[in-house]
Design a binder for these strands. Structure first.
Lengths: 360, 360
DNA sequence: ATGAGCGGGACGTATTAGGTCCCTTTGGGT
DNA sequence: ACCCAAAGGGACCTAATACGTCCCGCTCAT
């Protein structure tokens, strides 16, 4: 249940206006949404069986089966011994109908409001709450991956950060098509994450998915400043740093400051400092307060905040109601061209903004 | 089951593309068509009861009743002791959904093909066959009436011919709104029709329906040429003729030549002449052969063929498979800006054209 | 090798859709 | 002024379909 503000493909025939259709076949929208939900869920979970899907979606087996049989007959999904999966036409239909559904469910308008409130040109809002339902984060990643893929051009250097959301993005990136001229690099060196969600790992996975190349930047965590400077002076490291700082596209997750501090096992002193300076957001190793002012930075090599000015496209990806404050802060901290988030975060950001605006 | 090539009103929301909808909710498009059919039929027959309508539509009472109950609940139609009728919203919905349905059923494309084949800028194709089902002619008339109404502007002089189709047009013309500055005149004098379908009668009815004024032109049938010239020299008659020949809009039926000759009880000699000259079409007293050449003209006063050049809008209205050849002939004979016909005629014209083209 | 999970089949039940008849009311024609 | 044909609404029984549930043979990953 995808995106909201992507340009809508030109319709081949006359459009059946939703509000009109609602009037004469009200059950249409319910059926449409139900079937879209199934297709969408299958896309995320394929290959998956009837029962597992029914359990996942909270439907009974029989009724889901009826829909699935219909969708299979329509050629929108295929069923093999391993389970069901989308057909090419299923993908196409999902892409075509996603914007319609987004508008129908008000997410298009939500995205537009958020775009205005945060000053971010392109905002996409996916359905649900990443904190509540696991599949929402998958959708978030898929949506961000699709947007990224559309934006990539030959010669691009894509800098990515770590984090579970970015890991999801890499995992959900469609495999079709290749961009051999695209290079994926980690935005910054070691930040104390576990291996599977490190920027290096994600850069590698993403490069593999899009058929491009990647570079790693091995800078151990918790180095002293002088050691770091020595390391950065190494010709090999220095060359890679130059490449990173010349990135044309930056895709990054946004974290809640204290949550990130905990995950990275920062020292008590550091946490205390973050608290004192009221840090609420974290993005590529920088911590920001509510006004978007940087209040702390991890000591590692890689992309500096100032480097963002030279970047063609800065894309932020984050969802879940717990990320609302962090997203708003990050939006104030630096230029963000694209934001991919979810309904829960979007609504919470807007409520908070209208609240503070009214309260002052 | 209306029109095909009318400009589509700007959609307020996102359009659900028909072909896409067809793919994921095909059964709902069927119910949509069924309900539209009912609304349309009620519009033509209102006020009408459940049973009469069911018989008329070839459906059983119960199933029609279920739909009608739904439509009533949706506020699209009202049910009184006298029978059911459309509500305002019903009219609005019908108008909105008509182009959608036209495309859905391929009539939009049919109209476009016909437009190309006949060189007529605007072609509208309504559903069905006027020769087979009586209500199709009503739809034809209604559609033509709606188009005419849209085109009328202040000061227009509308010349109309006789015939059952034109009589239907006058009868179906919506009563709402008035055009006090519009004058309706008969295109030509007596042509031997029975009173109810004479141009004079139709002009009067049409003027009444649109709230305009009308003029009659009483020229008896079968006059000798010299008597006719004397009559036309009468100041009163001459003034009216001048008005007629300065018409800004001409709306006319198109007839099959021999059928019209029979209805007008032409002499055997005249019929023989028509046969010899291979007349196939008749329009406002002129008879044309297959190539659109005028081969005979009724001796009466009124609009001449040449006068059509000065007319702003020439609209032809004719349907039924038996009229196919006549319509094609008329289209070649003179400039026609708008044609309103039905599926049966449209298909037959196109088949004949592709046939002759291939055969030569 | 094996078993968990897959699609497909089967079946009894619950619910809905559909055919038919009836009743009271009302509006239009005589 | 009257009357009757036709209206909408109600009722009821049957046919059909939708649904919950369990089972089976197969495949593929472990």
């Amino acid at each position: 249940m995808g995106e909201a503000s992507r340009p809508i493909p030109a319709p081949a025939g006359p459009g059946l206006e939703i509000s009109t259709a609602q009037r004469i076949v009200p059950e249409l929208l319910d059926t449409l949404r139900a079937r879209m939900r199934i297709l969408h869920r299958i896309r995320l979970l394929q290959p998956i069986g009837r029962r597992a899907l029914a359990a996942e979606m909270g439907a009974t087996e029989r009724v889901l089966r009826a829909e699935v049989e219909f969708l299979r007959q329509q050629g929108l999904l295929t069923a093999g011994p391993a389970g069901m999966g989308l057909s090419e036409e299923g993908y196409a239909l999902l892409d075509q109908l996603d914007p319609v559904l987004a508008t129908l469910e008000g997410r298009t308008e939500l995205a537009a409001s958020l775009s205005r409130a945060l000053g971010i040109a392109r905002v996409t809002v996916v359905v649900g709450d990443s904190d509540e339902e696991p599949w929402v984060k998958d959708t978030l990643g898929l949506q961000a991956a699709s947007l990224l893929r559309e934006e990539l051009t030959s010669g691009d250097v894509v800098a990515v950060t770590g984090g579970t959301t970015m890991a999801t993005l890499a995992r959900m990136m469609p495999r079709r098509g290749t961009h051999p001229d695209v290079r994926v690099v980690p935005a910054r060196g070691g930040l104390g994450e576990s291996a599977s969600v490190q920027a290096n790992t994600i850069a590698e996975q993403l490069a593999q998915a899009i058929g491009g190349s990647h570079t790693v930047l091995h800078v151990p965590d918790r180095l002293g400043e002088d050691t770091l400077e020595h390391l950065m002076a190494e010709p090999m490291v220095e060359a890679r740093l130059r490449e990173i700082r010349s990135a044309t596209v930056v895709v990054h997750g946004i974290g809640s400051a204290l949550e990130m501090a905990r995950r990275r096992q920062l020292s008590e002193a550091e946490v205390a400092l973050l608290r004192e300076r009221r840090a609420v957001a974290e993005a590529f190793g920088y911590y920001f307060d509510q006004q978007g002012q940087p209040v702390y930075a991890m000591t590692t090599a890689g992309l500096k905040l100032a480097d963002l000015d030279g970047v063609r496209l800065v894309m932020g990806v984050a969802g879940g109601h717990s990320k609302a404050e962090a997203i708003a802060s990050a939006a104030r901290a630096y230029r963000m061209d694209v934001l991919v988030t979810d309904e829960a975060a979007a609504k919470r950001i807007l409520h908070a903004q209208s609240g503070t605006r009214a309260g002052r």
